[in-house]
Design a protein around this nucleic acid. Structure first.
Length: 513
RNA sequence: GGCCGAUUCGUCUAGCGGUUAGGACACCGCCCUUUCACGGCGGUAACACGGGUUCAAUUCCCGUAUCGGUCACCA
């Protein structure tokens, strides 16, 4: 029996979570649930310069919104606390020191300027790679080139230093990616990565490996941008003596720009007029507000469904999935290998599918609020009817109110094309006859009854109903398109219906002659 | 540029040696609706290119092209 699956989502609190990050978290979650395992949340805040206040809370709220439940980690606790890397520095320092003691890493004292000089010199010399590696390190200021006493003295004197990995000169490093298969890299392509920075905090590479090991992570599911450094990570597991329990890797394809070259960015979202963050984010420095999927009216279920299918497909023809269905059918080996272009139209379609399934009563209060904010009286009952009439036509809940404008507003102008084409003598006779037939109607003013009244009136007047429906619609709403007319009349009521018919008769009569 | 990865309709994708290359979004058309939509039905549309391997390649191998990622004391 293999050990229980444990995955982690390990974002950096450098700003709002990108939608691609949400997808990464989702795939981790689906895999964990599918395998009956656990999902951890770890905060990788080892870069003090890029820390953004509020980002961590934002990440947790975003995960909660889309329905990703964290079993262990930041915000929920667990046996491996703390889950914020900035609070675990001693752990990393201890392991980094161990690597130095075992001659697998070394101290380096080079300044930023010295590194620049080195790189420039190598580039000018047309060296294969301008990096700190097994060859160039012998010309730099580090514990491999300096006398031990000198090194000790500098450290004791408090001179800043970093710890670098002593990457082997020639060694084949291979890893078996769950999505991509075997990936081979020669160690000469890997430089002597900084493991511990001069501020005493680890770099991603070190912290990541140590924490994943300590926290019992069995599967590392992350973005493709990490694939180039994955061999380095394998090397680290080996040097730390943990290779036999090394997690399996799965590198996910990236989300690409809707058009053009490159990966999806905030700028594409601004240009395309779509969100790229799950929730609204207010930049703490500039105060600039970026709306999220939630604020734009996307339902969490739709967002998840859309994201899940961007790079993964169960191989069946099912398109709509609940979270439980996603879990049941998810399979890492079915993840597509190439990057996926981000297509917001598909997201809108998913939202359309989910909006129509929401109960009228749930959507009604929003419509009522919008109507009242716009200065209209709208009972909850009326809002309910409007929702029932329109929710199947829209992509977003907030569009219902806009679609209902012909209900709230009597027409002030009439669509000229329709008027020109359809407003003739028959139309006038029809509208007049219908108005007269409506006058004596008592009691409930319901669509079904209105339909009959109209039908009877047209029959009596000897007019084909189909011929005058467009004119009737224009008379009542000013527009050639809109929701079902009978129900529209039911909602606006008898008085308003008759009023609109008379207004149309008065203003449009003139145009005919 | 070096290294790594990828390449099926405009887009998301199914396919894992023999298929009329399937589905979804978008687009177009028809039907339904004595109105507008929703919806239903249908249509246009793809295996990057060149070599192999094989009785047979979209599928396997090698090149080429293109695209993506990465080359920091950022993650």
């Amino acid at each position: 029996m293999s050990k229980p699956v444990r995955v982690r989502f390990a974002p950096s609190p450098t700003g709002p979570l990108h939608i691609g990050g949400v997808r990464t978290a989702l795939y981790n979650y689906l895999f964990a649930r599918k395998m009956g395992g656990q999902m951890l949340l770890r905060i990788e805040d080892t870069d003090q310069n890029r820390f953004v206040p509020g980002a961590e809370d934002y990440i947790m709220e975003a995960l909660r919104w889309v329905g990703i439940e964290i079993d262990e980690g930041q915000g929920v606790g667990g046996p491996h606390a703390p889950y914020r890397q900035s609070e675990r520095r001693e752990i990393y320092q201890k392991e980094a020191q161990r690597l130095v003691d075992e001659d697998k890493a070394y101290y380096a004292f080079d300044t930023a300027e010295e590194l620049d000089v080195m790189r420039k010199r190598l580039e000018e010399a047309n060296a294969p790679a301008a990096q700190y590696n097994s060859i160039t390190r012998m010309q730099m200021r580090n514990s491999l080139t300096m006398k031990p006493d000198d090194v000790r003295a500098r450290i004791d004197a408090g001179e800043p230093f970093v710890i670098r990995l002593k990457t082997p000169r020639k060694e084949e490093v291979r890893l078996n990616d769950l999505i991509r298969g075997w990936v081979n890299v020669h160690s000469s392509a890997i430089d002597d990565k900084v493991l511990l920075k001069s501020d005493g905090l680890p770099t991603y590479h070190l912290a990541n490996i140590i924490d994943d090991h300590l926290m019992g992570i069995t599967h590392v599911i992350r973005g493709e941008e990490w694939l180039p450094s994955a061999p380095l990570h394998v090397l680290l597991y080996r040097y730390l003596g943990w290779e036999d329990t090394m997690p399996q890797f799965a590198h996910l394809p990236l989300l690409l720009k809707p058009e053009g070259n490159g990966k999806l960015s905030k700028r594409d979202a601004d240009l395309g007029g779509f969100p790229i963050f799950p929730l609204q984010w207010t930049d703490p420095v500039t105060g600039v507000v970026a709306r999220g999927f939630r604020e734009e009216g996307y339902l969490p279920e739709a967002t998840i469904n859309f994201l899940a299918l961007l790079g993964w497909n169960p191989g069946t023809e099912q398109e709509l999935f609940t979270m439980d269905e996603l879990i049941a059918s998810f399979d890492l080996t079915q993840v597509h290998k190439a990057g996926a272009r981000f297509d917001i139209q598909k997201a809108q379609w998913f939202n359309h599918q989910y909006i129509r399934q929401v109960a009228d009563q749930e959507l009604a209060p929003t419509v009522q609020q919008q109507a009242e904010a716009a200065g209209f009286n709208c009972s909850l009952e009326k809002a309910n009817k409007i929702v029932a009439l329109l929710k199947g036509r829209v992509n977003f809940a907030h569009e219902i109110f806009n679609e209902a404008s012909t209900i709230f507003n009597a027409p002030s102008v009439y669509d000229e094309t329709i008027v020109a084409a359809k407003w003739n003598d028959d139309a006038i006779r029809a509208v007049t006859a219908f108005r007269d037939a409506l006058q004596p109607v008592d009691g409930d003013f319901l669509a079904e009854a209105i339909k009959h009244t109209l039908g009877d009136a047209m029959q009596q007047a000897g007019i084909k109903q189909g011929k005058i429906m467009q004119a009737m619609r224009v008379a009542l709403t000013g527009s050639g398109t809109g929701p079902d007319l009978m129900l529209t009349m039911e909602i606006i009521g008898k008085e308003e219906t008759i009023g609109r018919l008379e207004a149309a008769l008065a203003t449009l009569k003139i145009k005919v002659s």
